[in-house]
């Protein structure tokens, strides 16, 4: 066999090729892995209880994360997804991270603030199209009840853990229970018919599925909820604007009533919908 001049090049080539990749590994894998700050739990990070952990496993197993992200970006577009952008420390207890890469459905980082009730979650998982006729989310009615419960418990646990808690049960509260910040609030739209019309539109997008198209507490999700959605025609007569604004903003503790402040309605929109509710009492 004659001496092969280039034979030795193959191993040399292999080593050089490896070194080129090694550069990338060093700066974009090794450096972040050694960055201790990335593992420091933030105030938002909270270890999950056993049932929620099981729910999270089911969430990974069923591929919910192909359609749902769990990360709120640092840009204006993402403000509506929650009160604060996700930070590295928020994921300190997460394995896998489940950030997700597509939003075929909504971001779920703070979904527990929007849909705080496990029964609502189960109903939605079983039949998404009953609550949202145009939803393309799969039905998970075939899952065992225990799985649905774990999933629902997990979803409800996904909420903002950093804001002060101003929540109480609406049906057990009176005007005296309104927190100070809300007591002093004034409706900027009092008597404004344009605002009532805007509130009407918001109501028939965001509220009707529970409170019903006529606001009497009989929407398609109502039968699954305990306590049931309030009859807002009655509330219009018995509650003050400040009370309504408080509950609409902060939600009702341990019920399905979302905290709309965190669920994506601006202050203006919340006042508009309160004006609308009030108008149902025939007073405005």
């Amino acid at each position: 066999m004659k001496k092969l001049p280039l034979y030795k090049k193959l191993p040399v080539f292999g080593v050089v090729a490896f070194l080129f990749l090694g550069f990338a590994i060093t700066i974009t894998v090794a450096a972040p892995l050694m960055d201790k700050e990335l593992y420091q739990p933030s105030p938002q990070a909270k270890p999950l209880d056993a049932l929620a952990s099981k729910g999270r496993e089911i969430y990974a197993r069923e591929g919910c994360w192909y359609c749902h992200t769990q990360t709120v970006r640092t840009i204006a577009n993402d403000k509506k997804w929650g009160p604060r952008a996700s930070q590295p420390g928020d994921f300190a207890y997460s394995n896998p991270a489940l950030l997700g890469s597509e939003r075929t459905g909504p971001d779920l980082t703070y979904v527990g603030d929007r849909w705080p009730d496990e029964n609502w979650q189960i109903k939605h998982l079983q039949d998404p199209r009953a609550l949202n006729p145009d939803s393309v989310m799969p039905s998970f009615a075939h899952l065992p009840q225990a799985d649905l419960q774990a999933l629902a418990h997990y979803l409800v646990s996904l909420k903002d853990n950093t804001a002060p808690d101003l929540q109480k049960r609406a049906d057990q509260s009176t005007e005296a229970d309104i927190p100070d910040v809300y007591k002093k609030a004034v409706n900027p739209f009092a008597g404004d018919t344009a605002a009532i019309a805007a509130g009407d539109a918001i109501f028939h997008k965001s509220c009707w599925s529970c409170h019903g198209a006529t606001a009497e507490g009989n929407g398609p999700a109502a039968s699954a909820l305990k306590p049931p959605p309030a009859n807002l025609r009655k509330s219009a007569l018995t509650r003050s604007e400040q009370f309504l604004f408080w509950i609409v903003s902060e939600g009702s503790k341990s019920t399905a009533m979302p905290a709309w402040k965190k669920a994506g309605l601006t202050e203006e929109q919340r006042w508009q919908v309160v004006s609308y509710i009030k108008s149902l009492g025939g007073q405005q």
């Binding site: 292999g14 894998v29 990335l38 590295p88 991270a97």
Partner: peptide, 28 residues
């Protein structure tokens, strides 16, 4: 040469325990 290395790193060093957690899981 590259692919097996990238595959092993990206799949948590092929460890069943998935040792890389938190946001670094997403980075890797």
């Amino acid at each position: 040469i590259w692919t097996p290395i990238i595959y092993a790193i990206g799949n948590q060093f092929l460890l069943p325990t998935n040792p890389i957690s938190g946001v670094n899981d997403a980075v890797v």
